[in-house]
């Protein structure tokens, strides 16, 4: 499964027509210690670019946007008790939510890992 990235530092991993979404290791590092994650409700329809979640570090709150449109099928409820998982495994167990995609072609506009790495190096 390939992982794609947005300029807002979300990652998307497609499995069939379900996309798993989280924040990149770069973003988790920039945020510092994550202490709270507010996730969308299952069943919610999200438009690409809409605010989907909020991640709070010790210092500040940051929005997480839906990288693609779809309906929320699952959220990572473990983050409620263990928000630090976002720092420990941002692109693994620290995933945020899953979406049933409404338009797979939206993925085409996102960066692959190499392009994202280059993007981050330029920041």
């Amino acid at each position: 499964m390939t992982t794609r990235y947005t300029k807002d530092h979300e990652w998307v991993r497609l499995d069939g027509d379900t996309a798993t979404i989280g924040i990149s290791a770069y973003a988790a590092g920039e945020l510092g210690d994550v202490v709270f994650v507010e996730l969308p409700e299952a069943g919610k329809a999200l438009e690409k670019g809409a605010e989907a979640a909020v991640v709070e570090s010790v210092k500040a709150a940051s929005e997480v946007y839906a990288p693609v449109s779809g309906e929320v099928t699952e959220i990572n409820a473990a983050l409620e008790e263990a928000p630090q998982t976002v720092n420990e495994a941002p692109e693994g167990d620290g995933w945020f939510f899953r979406l049933k995609l409404s338009d797979k072609s939206q993925l085409d506009g996102l960066m692959d890992e190499a392009a994202y790495k280059t993007f981050c190096e330029g920041l």
Binding site: G32, V35, K59
Partner: peptide
């Protein structure tokens, strides 16, 4: 410096 190792640590 806002942090070194991490604020919580």
């Amino acid at each position: 410096p806002v942090q070194f190792e991490g604020i919580i640590a």
